[in-house]
Simulated assay, not measured.
Amino acid sequence: MKNSNKKYVHYKKQAAPEDGSVRAKKHLGQHFLMDENVAKNIADSLTYSGYKNVLEIGPGMGVLTKYLVKKDIDFHVIEIDSESVVYLKENYPELEGKVHEKDFLKYDLKEIFQEEPYAIIGNFPYNISTQIVFKTLENRDQIPEFSGMFQKEVAQRIAAPHGNKTYGILSVLTQAFYDVTYLFTVPPGVFNPPPKVDSGVILLKRKEDFKLPCDEALFFRVVKTAFQQRRKTLRNSLKIFQLPDELREDVIFNQRPEQLSTEEFIDLTLKIQPYAV
């Protein structure tokens, strides 16, 4: 965006912008999207099928919000920045009672949606984006769809296939429960202030059968333990499980974690399960 850097410097010099807009706050990881086409494409990326509730995380000045309020949905936003909350309430009166000034990572969303399903959408702050995904996984029973913008590197990591060098904990755990689609890349210039890297938008659609055939808590533990020493074979990285020698002779233990697909990690967990404490 032309003159983005100049405008950012102007914001830093003032307590608040004179035009009534919101200051981008570095400690909140805010980069406000300014491109209408990108905002519309993100808003249109959800199917809006099988659920009526949608939650936008970190709407800022509402560039994405303006397209979501037009949808035939029960739409809520959650925003930790009090300045943005004031702006949203003033500019989106249709959201009365649906602007929640809360920290998404600490808030129990059942207070909004009870036991009903809801989708998540947003231009996520880079500094908490992976935590947003992990909280989504914790609440997967209620979240059939998820669409959002991340730092490109993080978006690619979530969508990475096994065998890829960026494939890791976030890839395996997300892909165990959701089908992941990398939708498109967004350049820095369409944000204010512009970030130093490209962004990427991904869509998560929960699998039709998202219940794992293994112990799910053990599955999480196996995946995280394996990738903590990703350069080692599973025979070495999973020593903490104190598995019997005959099991550790299984060929799957010759591999490194990035070589295993999600399905193979499930199979590995099933092999370990009888011996897990």
Rank of each mutant, 00 (worst) to 15 (best):
N254W: 10
N236H: 11
A226W: 09
K239M: 08
S261F: 04
F227K: 01
F227C: 00
P193D: 05
V223T: 13
F227E: 01
L204Y: 04
Q229V: 08
V223I: 08
I252A: 03
T233I: 14
E216C: 00
C214P: 08
P257T: 10
F220D: 15
D215C: 02
N192S: 11
F210E: 03
N236M: 06
L218F: 10
F227Y: 01
P195E: 06
F191W: 00
F219W: 09
N236Q: 07
L238K: 10
P257I: 12
L204F: 05
T262G: 13
R231Q: 10
I240F: 09
P213M: 07
F220K: 13
E258Y: 09
D250I: 01
R230P: 00
S261Q: 04
R235H: 12
E208H: 09
G200C: 05
R256T: 14
L234A: 04
K239W: 01
S261P: 06
K207G: 07
E258L: 12
K232G: 03
F253A: 01
T225V: 09
V251Y: 02
R206Q: 15
K207I: 11
P194S: 09
V201L: 03
D209C: 04
L203Q: 15
P193W: 03
I202G: 11
I252Q: 09
K232L: 04
I240E: 11
L218V: 11
C214V: 15
L234T: 02
A226L: 06
Q255K: 13
A217I: 04
T233A: 02
L212Y: 08
L260K: 01
N192E: 14
P193A: 11
K232T: 10
R235S: 13
F210G: 02
R230N: 08
D209M: 07
L243R: 00
G200K: 00
K224H: 00
D209A: 05
P193I: 04
T233G: 12
R256W: 06
E208M: 09
K232Q: 08
D245N: 09
S199F: 02
I240M: 11
F220I: 06
V223A: 15
P194E: 06
P195R: 10
E208Y: 01
K239S: 12
R235L: 03
T262R: 00
L260W: 05
V251S: 05
I202W: 08
L203W: 06
T225C: 07
D209V: 11
T233N: 13
P195Q: 08
V251P: 04
K211E: 14
L204A: 10
I202P: 06
Q228G: 10
L247G: 11
L234D: 14
L234G: 05
E208P: 00
V223K: 12
F253K: 07
C214A: 12
C214L: 09
T233E: 14
T262A: 07
T233P: 01
V201T: 09
D209Y: 07
N236I: 13
D198Y: 03
P213V: 14
L260E: 00
R230E: 08
R235W: 01
E208D: 15
L260M: 05
V251L: 09
K239Q: 15
F227W: 04
V197G: 03
Q255G: 00
K205M: 10
E263Y: 02
D245A: 12
I252R: 03
Q242E: 15
I240P: 04
K224L: 00
F219Y: 15
E263C: 01
L260V: 01
D215N: 14
Q255Y: 14
K196I: 02
E258D: 15
L243Q: 02
F241L: 02
E258Q: 15
V222S: 09
K239H: 07
F191I: 06
